[in-house]
């Protein structure tokens, strides 16, 4: 990589500043940002799919699987290393996506969405039926450790936060690089006209399969990160409403940039958190109305605020 794109700088700089400022920030801010990064990973995966014209209503499948893989590692094998948990979450999700991909990559539009949703609901049903994993109550994920060192509560929060920031930078660079590859740059073409892509000699199915696996790995990573941040996981993560919320944040963020999903999740989580606090009886109404405003005025997502300004400048 000779030159790092400007949008990447927009991501890396604040993250670096946040990492440095982390120890001085209130704990709840660290938590909110870490959680938003976790969800941001899932949304980033969905954004990649959306650029190809695909919407998944079942990304909760991989989000939940990643969380359970990380959780089970701690519960069964007693492993709590932060890196191992994250990697195992992403790997488990990617593996399942690789297998399901042979089937799912043939589907488009609403059928892709509903098939993926059906799979995530089946996982939900299986987990609810599994008493050993706590059924619908789920189970607690052990406090993550760093290279075997167990830290106190406050330092753990900062450690997970710093690891999340670092992971974000790595992932953003990776995705950015991927989009420059031939396979990655096919996305808009597939969205516009699959047949033409095939005539050009590229395999649409292969391109979608790869993308599906990448999106799943990101969702698994996000699930593992969310699981260890919250400290508890349950089958609700695979429920269709969870997946629906991710799609929601994806559209809200816009597909303009790798940075958008993280910013979008942060804004979404913040709005929701304050709506809960100041409007405990009507937070759904506040949330719904805020989103309508975004859809109507920023049809390309919140990211378009930045791009529009840049164009004007």
């Amino acid at each position: 990589m000779k030159r790092i794109d400007r949008t990447l700088l927009v991501l890396i700089l604040p993250l670096a500043i946040l990492m440095a400022a982390g120890p001085f920030l209130p704990q709840w801010v660290l938590f909110l940002v870490t959680l938003s990064i976790g969800k941001g990973f899932v949304v980033l995966g969905l954004m990649l799919l959306l650029r190809t014209g695909l919407v998944s209503f079942g990304q909760g499948l991989f989000y939940c699987l990643g969380a359970y893989a990380a959780g089970a590692l701690g519960k069964v094998l007693g492993i709590s290393d932060v890196f191992l948990l994250l990697v195992s979450g992403a790997a488990a999700a990617a593996l399942l996506a690789y297998i399901l991909g042979f089937l799912v990559a043939q589907y488009r539009d609403i059928f892709f969405a509903m098939l993926s949703m059906a799979f995530s609901m089946i996982l939900y049903g299986l987990l609810v039926k599994t008493a050993a994993l706590g059924s619908s109550d789920g189970f607690n994920v052990p406090v993550p450790t760093l290279f075997g060192a167990k830290l106190v509560e406050a330092s753990t929060r900062y450690m997970v936060f710093a690891v999340a920031c670092a992971a974000t930078i790595l992932v953003a660079l990776g995705v950015h690089w991927y989009q420059k590859t031939t396979l990655g740059s096919l996305s808009p073409a597939i969205k516009d006209n699959e047949l033409r892509v095939e005539y050009m000699g590229a395999s649409v199915r292969h391109a979608i399969h790869v993308k599906f696996v990448i999106a799943a790995a990101l969702a698994g990573l996000g699930g593992a990160l969310t699981g260890m941040t919250v400290g508890h996981i349950d089958p609700e993560m695979a429920y269709w409403t969870t997946s629906g919320e991710f799609v929601f944040v994806t559209i809200l963020s816009g597909t303009g940039s790798v940075v958008a999903p993280f910013l979008g999740s942060l804004i979404f989580e913040t709005i929701r958190s304050y709506a809960y606090e100041y409007s405990p009886n009507t937070w759904q109404m506040v949330l719904g109305a805020s989103m309508l405003l975004v859809i109507v005025f920023l049809p390309l997502g919140m990211w378009s605020i930045f791009t529009a300004r840049r164009k004007r400048a």
Partner: peptide, 22 residues
């Protein structure tokens, strides 16, 4: 607009109506 955008618009309506009913 995109089908997904319309879907999200109806989702927002859903959220608002849920609280309105309440």
């Amino acid at each position: 607009k995109d089908e997904v955008v319309l879907l999200l618009a109806t989702y927002s309506v859903f959220l608002i109506l849920e609280d309105a009913i309440k």
